[in-house]
Design a protein around this nucleic acid. Structure first.
Lengths: 417, 417
DNA sequence: TTTCCTTTGGTACCCCTATAATCATCTCCA
DNA sequence: TGGAGATGATTATAGGGGTACCAAAGGAAA
């Protein structure tokens, strides 16, 4: 009965304020539970905190001062497994002190809507123990806070479907006039100026709720980029991002994606998730190109796992960008590079390794010494082999045209076998 | 009346022999005209010669001994313009002595069927002059010889249409079973084993009779290759060739085509005629690939006139083989190499020549010294520029992948402008 | 003037080329 | 069958040439 009473009290208190401020909400929860309360959003930004009475730990102090949870505290929470629990269920989690990040006793709960985490409530339980009753109350509190989030998100929620349609139009290039795009963006309170790019994260399987939560959470923590739009589509998480003015265009996407993919694979205990970004364009008109490019990066990363392990942007695909069209052309024209064929034939007949030597040589930027080291032969041996290759293959390795051609054909020969 | 009489006599004489030997024909003409006669086919192979009375010149002597006109004599005839006249009309041509090739006074006439030259008659007029009467008689003689050729060609003529159909089936790859192909080839007395390839000569305009004659004549004089089939199709002359057993596969087509094209352009006073060959295949099943390849060579040679001036075979196209598919892919994906874009922008802003320097460097097989020489700067200057290029373009020139990509993109950037 | 960019000179070190020697394998012929 | 000779593959050595790096000077813009 006591519990029901308190619950009613909470509800009444909450509903009595037509627009409850988050601070009042924190104070109210703190009062009922009898301990300091902190409310954060999904991105660990401080929403509000209760008046504190008595001494507080270092983690709380710095969170309040910075208006967000310090990075090292977040990292510590991940490492200790606490965040993982919060991400995977909506029950209160009892957290023992973690001294090296200055964190005292806590009980925390995550707040959900559909599969998206809206935020967290942290109770600072240094001064009192939480038993079943308090934990029940804490869940009720989470429900209240969820309503607060829901109200504040309501406007964007209403637009959700409309936004999705617009996003697809951008991704498919359906709208051809920039003013039309910008007007619709304005209606949806989106800003589409600056450096834009599409990022595609591919889960390689159907995306579960847990996957979505982690993905949402991690993209929100990307640095130097702003997530303008996001959407799940089958196995893929599609992002429309804007680069910050002062970000280094050449590297920011690469770095963020690298970190993102490392973390999400780590947290979901897999290695299946890959991702890539398209080129950066200055107009939303071109975003459909970026989308296609990002998808191509993902596709190629699956196809050439090792080779493209460290490639995350379309720009860095290099020759792989053209590999499949060239390959298809070869198939269509039934073309086999006669040089390679001659060398293969010779190798087979004479039990030599001319073709492999040539490949290592080309891959070593045509440096005989480096290449010789890699295949454990004397540089002069490799030089001799190159001389033979020139004779047998009828190729001039000093002609960049011929060299490039055989390099391309060799890559294809190796990769499409 | 005398003329008509002789004409009748000639006809009678000719028709009296159910199968007149060419020797008798030569003797007959010699007797009527009162001078030694030589009959050759289109390829300057000796068909027959009349008994000679009196001294003969060196050219005749060596022609008879070798059973074909010596090369230097043929060349001399071309240089003096005689062959040109013979090729362009079917009237007797009076030829003054050409001493440096040992040729005395001659009157010659070419023998035609449709647009193909069948052969020539040479009258050795050292001992007597040809006037109007003799010239008329000479034309009658040519008509007789034509009939001789016609009889001997009749079997192949009958097959002409059937052959054309078969040729097209080969070119288009319509027949999928090798035994079927070989059987049909046998019916047409064609041999389709060995190293086969398709050659396409493109006249760049409608082909006239004169063009055809020269083309037929010149392909018959190719060395180390056998013309298995030939056909005119719109602006193109399509050849099916077989390489001789002992020919150097790597070079024989290149060399023959180079010479052929030089000569035919020269003789027809143009530079419009181009030609190319496809790959060499060992089975007629693959000839349709060779045909497509040869057409591609022709098309690319028109598109990149200077760059492919010395390329005649598909094998030697090098990177041009892939250029258009890569280009189309770029267009489709709206891709502009960001490295090149950044360098262009920098060059424009700072009035520098980084992009051009990079191009020369890549074209010089990445040899700083050679490249520096070409653009007249100190090698260290170029080194410095390369350092800047690496910084501004964010490119690692020691990575063959990146280098190849930018090389390809630069070629396309230059050629498709 | 300061600063940044570009060019050039110098030097030490690394790399490439050419030549020759060594070894293995195969062919051919007595 | 043995051995001379040919061919091919590898290693050794020397010297010239190319490259990377440092330093300095000239020039343009702030």
């Amino acid at each position: 009965m006591n519990q029901v009473l308190i619950e009613k009290q909470l509800y009444d208190a909450f509903q009595s304020e037509s627009v409850a401020t988050p601070e009042k909400l924190a104070d109210l929860i703190a009062e009922i539970l009898g301990c300091p309360i902190t409310i954060e959003d999904a991105n660990h930004q401080l929403i509000s905190y209760s008046k504190h009475n008595g001494n507080i730990d270092e983690a709380r102090m710095s969170t309040i001062v910075q208006r967000q949870v310090p990075d090292h505290v977040v990292n510590g929470l991940w490492k200790s497994g606490v965040m993982k629990q919060l991400f995977e269920r909506d029950e209160p989690v009892i957290i023992p002190p973690i001294h090296n990040i200055g964190l005292g006793n806590r009980v925390a709960i995550s707040i959900w809507e559909d599969n998206e985490i809206l935020g967290f409530i942290w109770a600072h339980t240094d001064e009192r123990d939480f038993h079943e009753k308090e934990l029940q109350l804490f869940k009720v509190a989470a429900d209240l806070v969820k309503k607060y989030f829901a109200i504040n998100k309501s406007t964007s929620r209403e637009n959700e479907k409309e936004f999705r349609d617009f996003f697809w139009q951008l991704l498919l290039g359906d709208i051809k006039e920039e003013p039309v795009i910008l007007q619709r963006a304005k209606q949806l309170s989106l800003s589409l100026n600056g450096d834009l790019s599409i990022v595609v994260i591919d889960f390689g399987k159907e995306v579960t709720g847990v996957d979505e939560k982690h993905a949402h959470y991690l993209v929100d923590r990307m640095e130097q980029v702003e997530i303008v739009g996001r959407m799940f589509d089958q196995n893929q998480f599609i992002l429309l991002v804007r680069l910050n003015e002062n970000a280094n265009k050449k590297t920011v996407l690469h770095e963020n994606l690298q970190i993102f993919l490392y973390k999400i694979n780590n947290r979901l205990q897999t290695d299946r998730i890959v991702g890539g970004s398209g080129l950066i364009y200055q107009t939303p008109l071109d975003l459909h190109y970026s989308y296609q490019q990002a998808k191509k990066v993902v596709r190629l990363k699956r196809q050439f796992k090792e080779e493209l392990e460290n490639v995350f942007t379309y720009e860095k695909l290099g020759i792989f960008q053209y590999l499949d069209v060239v390959y298809n052309n070869k198939i269509k024209e039934n073309y086999k590079n006669p040089i390679i064929e001659r060398l293969k034939q010779y190798d087979k007949k004479n039990n030599t390794e001319l073709l492999h030597s040539l490949w290592i040589f080309l891959e070593s930027n045509c440096n005989v010494f480096d290449a010789a080291k890699k295949i454990h032969v004397h540089p002069n041996t490799l030089n001799y082999r190159l001389k033979r290759i020139k004779e047998i293959g009828d190729i001039d390795l000093n002609d960049p045209n011929q060299k490039t051609t055989v390099y391309l054909d060799l890559i294809i020969d190796k990769l499409y076998k």
